[in-house]
Nucleic acid binder design. Sequence first.
DNA 1: CGCAAAAATAAAAATAATTTTCATTTGTTA
DNA 2: TAACAAATGAAAATTATTTTTATTTTTGCG
Lengths: 278, 278
Amino acid sequence: MNKIALKIKVLYKEMGKAEKRIADWLSNNTGEILPLSIVDLAEKCGCSEATIVRFAKRLGFSGYQELKISLAQETNSSSISTSITPDDTVSEIYDKVCNDIYCSLEMTKKVLDSKALMRACEKIMSAKRIVIFGLGNSASAALDASHKLLRVGLDACACSDNHMQMITASHLTEEDVVIAISHSGSSKDIVDALKIAKQSGATSISITNTGKSPIQKYSDILLYTSSEETKHNILALSSRIAQLSIINALYFYIVYHRSEKALDAIKETEQSLLSKKY
Amino acid sequence: MNKIALKIKVLYKEMGKAEKRIADWLSNNTGEILPLSIVDLAEKCGCSEATIVRFAKRLGFSGYQELKISLAQETNSSSISTSITPDDTVSEIYDKVCNDIYCSLEMTKKVLDSKALMRACEKIMSAKRIVIFGLGNSASAALDASHKLLRVGLDACACSDNHMQMITASHLTEEDVVIAISHSGSSKDIVDALKIAKQSGATSISITNTGKSPIQKYSDILLYTSSEETKHNILALSSRIAQLSIINALYFYIVYHRSEKALDAIKETEQSLLSKKY
DNA sequence: CGCAAAAATAAAAATAATTTTCATTTGTTA
DNA sequence: TAACAAATGAAAATTATTTTTATTTTTGCG
């Protein structure tokens, strides 16, 4: 409960009918006041503007504006993702896609476990080999991760084929690290492969969405994303972006903590790729 | 993460002197705007009220009020990031990574060509085959695109191997579409493959960063991203995210404009993947 | 119950804030 | 340097907010 809601509660009994209506409307429509003018709000509450000003003053504000600003500060600004409709123009679609990405990244930040992320970095840096499992949708994230790690000079390899994953998993050792990427955390092949990898002694890191899922059972380190996949996004990009942003954070941490070695490796990579450009 | 500060940063160079003064004042006096009326702020910034309204509108608000409310909602959030340093914690790194992504998406929105995007969608929907070329970094974006298009029932295929690209390109027909993804637009292999594809009569669509590059010569439709790669992004994620967001916009447009067919295809996909989950 | 007195409220007036319009200035290009 | 476009500020128009005032409602008491 925020400060203003509290004040309203305390002062509620002192209010007249019309003011109580305002108080009720505000608590039933949190945040909705923000775009409204005093005239709009008066109509919504079925009272006059003067009453709203009195209401604001009762709460200790100089007027309606001050009340509204204070309410705005207490509102969680995390934007709400709106669903895409058939009538949307491509620009509108792009806007909504971006908005979804914002939401997903902000929510992922909330569930980010720095400790786990750092442990993952340390394990990856000291690993002999790193294999990354991802199927279908998550294959591209796995590919991205392998690219990044390769560029800093680590022995990384992405597996996007369930047979290869099994074979690879069975040959891992205690010195190796396996990274499994699965939004749902329920992909049979990934979970099975991870199980085998763990049996082989490798350290297992999972990147998956929050919530209980089978993958957790076989994960030494869990890195969570948070995005509402199923709702209106038939095939959401946002979860992938969250995965990528976590991978990118891993990457940068490693870049700066392997210092010389990593930077040299990156420079070498850049150099060798130069001949591939016009 | 402060979205408004970000928008200001992105749009700063487009502003006139007076608007820049507003932008500067706001960033130097975070939060102080809240109790000020537009008249007060105009005086503080040494400009007219009209300029402030224009400034608010440039940022995408309906007016001064909306800007102020939005700023109020963000007053508790953290500051804007600079570059990643070795001393950063993983959380800080994650923040900065997100910030980069936001920047890139906003800038890409600025250069988004809806017409081109729609033409691309139409071409893709009516194509017999769609092949997507991406190498190295862009391979994961190509893979992502092929996944999406496959799911809506289109005959899409990603090629992340320069030989395969050449072979595929030489066998395309007028009915086919080729999508080339390259941040720099200067990747030899991609440009060469695109050239061959065009010679074969296929419609060529490129997703590349703004600015002149060899790939433009062989592109029927150009879809631009915009991201500052060089800064602290030795290997930028943000350009990839911008590519993915464009691909996602394409995807959604197609989903809603192939109507029944696409939705059925997606449902079929979902259904068939169900057996792969725990 | 009925009549004040007090409190609460809404309508209207006054004030203030915001937005729009339009003329002027500034900068830019040929 | 003229011609054009962009940016800006002054003023007008609109809209929002606050204050005042009249009316209504509630409450307390004989």
